[in-house]
Design a protein around this nucleic acid. Structure first.
Lengths: 159, 159
DNA sequence: ACCATTGTTTTGAATCACTCAAAACAAGAT
DNA sequence: ATCTTGTTTTGAGTGATTCAAAACAATGGT
């Protein structure tokens, strides 16, 4: 089989050296380094906004025995550990991304569903303050922009 | 049974006169006025952020034969007609509210899940413009604030 | 290097929120 | 009063996600 080597990242080609970076990320989050975890994190690097199911398909290519529940488990542990962020746009399955720590937002195409990152106007969290927080201790402001992506605009404009 | 009267709103007690207002709202949206629709709109007036299931329970009290599918159907027609707004906070079932037309946002307690309306920081829709819209034609900006409500703050602070 | 501990993954099933479709029914127009 | 069209009921089905128990594997200690 063509599983990635879990140990010894020295004197190996770039693709596997990257796996070493992934490994560090997982380990320094206090999590055990496993093949499914490396595979999910690698797949998520290639797909910045992926569903659990998309990651499942991607991971299966390298690790055929992996279960969908393992993907959910990996994503839950990553999300809890703070090395992955889960976003849940209305009307679609949850998406996961590696970009964490900054306070960026998302723009979603209402037609094709493509998602892109949008930098926050203010750099820190929460980047917006409600006019009246009603006594809440506000910890985060989540912003999702909805609209048509450039490609869908041109396709929609056709006769 | 104790169904609300569907016709003749004159010389009736306030509760039924209100039903007349609900009726007008439904009719002027171009929808047929039915008992389930009146009941859903009435229940939604009392519960500004309700799930389909909560409305189902509420409606059943007055209209015991009503099905959950009818609630979903009513809410879909109301949402399409623009007299009800659907919001879908991460991790919970969809919520419905009667407050439409303005561009307000929501603040959700991460502990107890209570939802309140928050006026928009800027008055119009989209109330925020992304720094770089990436070629998107932005139609809406959806903001959800997450935090602890006043009550959960005090309960969490206990030893 | 081996073993024990603890955490992870597999396997299998179940749940929740929601949607679909056909038939029965009722509101509103004529 | 009748007809048309839209609504609700009835019944079934789906997709995304979660739960639980048993098998398994990664790290820490010996």
């Amino acid at each position: 089989m063509t599983l990635p080597e879990l140990s010894s990242g020295a004197d190996l080609p770039p693709a596997v050296a990257d796996a070493g970076l992934l490994e560090d990320g997982i380990r320094s989050a206090g999590l055990k380094v496993t093949a499914p975890r490396l595979a999910v994190l690698g797949a998520l690097t290639d797909r910045p906004h992926a569903t659990a199911d998309a990651l499942f398909s991607a991971v299966r290519a390298d690790l055929p025995g992996t279960s969908l529940q393992a993907i959910y488990g990996v994503l839950a542990s990553f999300t809890t550990a703070g090395i992955v962020r889960k976003i849940e746009p209305a009307g679609s399955a949850a998406l996961f991304e590696r970009r964490v720590g900054d306070n960026h937002h998302h723009i979603v195409c209402t037609r094709c569903g493509v998602v892109h990152d949008v930098d926050c106007a203010v750099g820190h969290s929460p980047c917006l303050t409600p006019v009246d927080a009603l006594g809440f201790d506000v910890r985060a402001a989540e912003v999702i922009y909805w609209g048509l992506c450039a490609q869908c605009q041109s396709e929609t404009a056709l006769p």
